[in-house]
């Protein structure tokens, strides 16, 4: 033993060198949390109700029943959510409105997520100059209030159908997501397995698709879940304001119908209002739960 100059400086893995989780079980994460179960259940129920609205309701969304006899009735056994000033059944209008709201919200969120993910990850992998230009563009767009942006586009848009509205809302909702996606992609770029792939001769598009995107999807998904809630509220607001042409039924326009006497006609404000809050809450509960599962990380809205 007399001749042994040696030292070993093995370093134990620290928190910073922790492995990325192999795969988050989204379903398991949600199922194990009572709050998320309730939220998920509510959204599933609402989704089904919206899907089968024509079969679940007795009246059409715009069907005028009896402008004299059935005008502005409070909730009753025959009209669960009451009727509005032109004698339409509010329950039927709510379910048909959910069809519009949820479709717009999901479409818009999917669009934001896709564009944001692509923009952010491509910026992260591009040359510094291109990256700078792309991210400065996002900064500029983020500095304009989103509502202003939406109203401007709508004013210029010839025919704002619900799908068009989804495109407008989705098209103005990806800026924050792209920042998040870029941050994620840069963090994953630091992981040595991406360097290993480059050293193997893997090309940049393949690197992006195989090694970077799959890891950035999680946080982006969480961010776009939050976006669903925001879009539902915003779109209700636009219909309420009447800046977009009305559709047969929407939650915003139901509230609008009751705006002349919100206290007397409380059911016209209460039901859409409660549903809006419930959707927002559910979506945020689920997003919060998913976020804590992937990583406690700061997400900014929009």
């Amino acid at each position: 033993m007399a001749e042994t100059p040696a030292s070993t400086l093995a370093i134990e893995p620290t928190a910073t060198t922790r492995a990325l989780p192999a795969r988050v079980s989204w379903w398991g994460t949600l199922a194990s949390d009572p709050g998320s179960r309730v939220a998920l259940g509510f959204l599933a129920l609402l989704g089904l109700a919206a899907l089968f609205a024509p079969w679940l309701t007795t009246y059409g969304p715009a069907q005028v029943l009896d402008p004299v006899g059935l005008q502005s009735l409070p909730p009753s056994a025959s009209h669960w959510f009451g009727t509005d000033p032109v004698s339409r059944d509010v329950f039927s209008r709510m379910l048909h409105g959910a069809r519009v709201s949820l479709r717009i919200a999901v479409l818009a969120a999917a669009l934001s997520a896709t564009v944001g993910l692509a923009w952010g990850t491509i910026a992260a992998l591009s040359r510094p100059l291109i990256d700078q230009v792309m991210m400065r563009t996002v900064d500029a767009l983020l500095s304009i209030p989103r509502l202003l942006l939406v109203l401007t586009i709508i004013a210029l848009w010839p025919q704002v159908t619900p799908t068009a509205l989804a495109v407008v809302l989705g098209g103005t909702g990806w800026f924050g997501i792209s920042r998040l996606a870029r941050t994620e992609a840069l963090a994953i770029r630091q992981r040595e397995f991406t360097a290993a792939a480059t050293a193997l001769g893997v090309s940049t598009p393949v690197l992006l698709l195989r090694h970077i995107l799959p890891h950035a999807v999680g946080p982006v998904l969480v961010a776009s879940t939050i976006a669903v809630g925001q879009v539902v509220v915003m779109e209700a607001g636009l219909y309420f304001l009447g800046v977009v042409p009305d559709v047969p039924a929407s939650w915003g326009s139901i509230i609008q119908d009751g705006r002349n006497a919100p206290l007397t006609w409380w059911w016209l404000t209460l039901f859409p209002g409660v549903f809006l809050v419930a959707v927002s809450l559910s979506v945020n509960t689920i997003a919060g739960r998913l976020r804590s599962a992937i990583n406690p990380r700061q997400l900014h809205g929009r």
Binding site: P13, T17, R18, A19, L20, P21, A22, R23, Q190, R191, E192, F193, A196, A197, R210, H211, P214, H215
Partner: peptide
């Protein structure tokens, strides 16, 4: 770093 050098997925 054996923990960051392999793609976990």
């Amino acid at each position: 770093d054996p923990f960051s050098s392999l793609n976990p997925r």
